[in-house]
Design a protein around this nucleic acid. Structure first.
Lengths: 207, 207
DNA sequence: GTATGTGAATCTCTTCACAGCA
DNA sequence: TGCTGTGAAGAGATTCACATAC
């Protein structure tokens, strides 16, 4: 039964469930119980069932979930049932790594354009994508790209983010260690490597 | 006043507060109120005060926080008051990017060793660090390295993680998209880029 | 018999609102 | 007066336990 509000934590877990289901299907598991999936990804069965319940009833009582059907359902919830084009801005070391990273494709993402402001990089080709001058960012609108990956320096991030939003971007995966101020209909998800690293010592025993 | 249990969410925010305080101090702010810090990093003043209160009383009523003192206090809580040596395993595209990434240093981390299993990479030098054969991982114990950054493929991650733990590593920053099974006194923090990307479309309006 | 789906209970985290102190 | 520090209240997320359906 559809509830009024879906917990954010639930949305965070859905991609984990999706990946788990995909891997288990590859392994030949045509059908899954919440317990099997839980064991595979390291979660609790009750959590999985509760999370699914926010979106409806996916399974069969006494049996479990049909794996391909489950994959379709989660994909649809996450709007991953269609492919998504993405643009990458900032082709430094991290940007290059992201460019050749293959992990996005299982969720249906493909990087369709890349921009930088460094003349030495513009015109170069990585993975079949030619790096363009950031001054020509507006071309992403015609390409109907709505997702951006931001891998520029902190100093440039806010300015580039605004430019992206002005050119039709609706969601940003942000790798710069700073807060982005964007209109509230734009979703920003930030990955801050140093921030995560910084809390490791807290949890480590003794020295 | 020290409470029995510190919320995990609080620990996640401490590095944000720390970075904010450092940046504001650089900007000349010798003293801070919870409201100023909150505005700078995008949080609520009450949240900041509550978070600090788990560890004691850092400020002066009616005045605020002495910025350098605050930085020291948070650093101490996070055990960032000493420098931490880290080892990087997996010098692919992402590993190389991490190797040259400068964002760790403000928290006192330095990468002191790097390993890979690719003969073509072994012996190469990046940023002053020579890439060593992963077969020689045991040398990290003598160097007293307790933190590892794992940037190998999913297939190798579990095996390498075990090897790291066997050689004295107490905390792992894991970039591979898989769960690591480690003894429970070992802390793993995972960064899964594709997973974060995968929930972007959910939040985006329309198509 | 077996595993889902879900209200209720529990636990955790955040916000409030104000006492306490410079 | 002004801002911290903190119990209490409120909101949010997880776990429990069982009715429900195959």
């Amino acid at each position: 039964m559809r509830h009024y509000r879906i917990p954010d934590e639930t949305v965070k877990r859905l991609p984990v469930y999706l990946r788990g289901a995909v891997l288990l299907l590859k392994d030949g598991k045509k059908s899954l119980s919440s317990g099997e999936l839980a064991g595979f990804i390291g979660a609790s069965p009750a959590q999985i069932r509760k999370d699914f319940s926010y979106f409806g009833a996916f399974g069969t009582r006494g049996v479990g979930y049909d794996t391909p059907k489950l994959i379709k359902q989660i994909s649809k919830i996450l709007k991953l049932n269609k492919r998504h084009k993405a643009v990458l801005v900032g082709i430094g070391n991290l940007g290059t790594a992201i460019m050749v990273y293959t992990g996005f494709s299982i969720y249906g993402f493909s990087i369709e354009a890349a921009f930088d402001n460094d003349a030495k990089k513009i015109g170069k080709k990585i993975n079949g994508i030619t790096i363009e001058d950031i001054a020509k960012l507006r071309t992403i609108r015609a390409k109907k790209i709505q997702i951006a990956i931001l891998a520029v320096t902190s100093g440039q991030a806010q300015r580039v983010a605004e430019s992206l939003v002005n050119n039709g971007i609706k969601g940003i995966l942000n790798f710069s260690p700073c807060r982005l101020e964007v209109p509230k209909n734009i979703k920003v998800i930030s990955i801050d490597i140093a921030l995560d690293m910084a809390r490791l010592p807290y949890y480590m025993p003794k020295t």
